[in-house]
């Protein structure tokens, strides 16, 4: 077996996450799909670190995790705020830009 297989898995997970962002309406699920895409990217970083024999990929993956944690905190706070004012967690309901 070949470490590149991990990359294929990462690509598939990323694609699934992308579909989820487009087709799911619940803002929290959309957000979880974004997290899935981030994790897929992390997997490629770790795999490439292994293939290249240096730890820099792992360091970047570490930073990605920290940034993802920040994003989750702020993103969820925004969802809660929107829910509070609109009584809905649907991303389609927040379509005020239309008009």
């Amino acid at each position: 077996m070949n470490p590149y297989n991990y990359l294929y898995v990462a690509g598939l997970l990323f694609t699934i996450g992308a579909i989820g962002v487009v087709i799911r309406r619940n803002a929290i699920v959309v957000f979880m799909c974004v997290e899935l895409m981030l994790n897929a990217a992390n997997l490629t970083l770790v795999t490439f670190a292994r293939i290249n024999g240096t730890l820099d990929g792992q360091v970047v993956a570490f930073f990605t995790m920290v940034v993802a944690a920040c994003e989750v905190v702020v993103g969820l706070a925004i969802i809660v705020t929107i829910y509070r004012s609109r009584r809905s967690a649907s991303v389609d309901d927040a379509s005020l830009l239309k008009r």
Binding site: I28, A68, V72, L76, A89, S90, V91
Partner: peptide, 20 residues
């Protein structure tokens, strides 16, 4: 941490038509 936060917010927001 992060997934628990997600679950926590899910409970806070509750359930509505967006799950359809």
């Amino acid at each position: 941490a992060v997934m628990m936060l997600f679950l926590f917010i899910l409970m806070l927001v509750g359930v509505d038509a967006s799950d359809s």
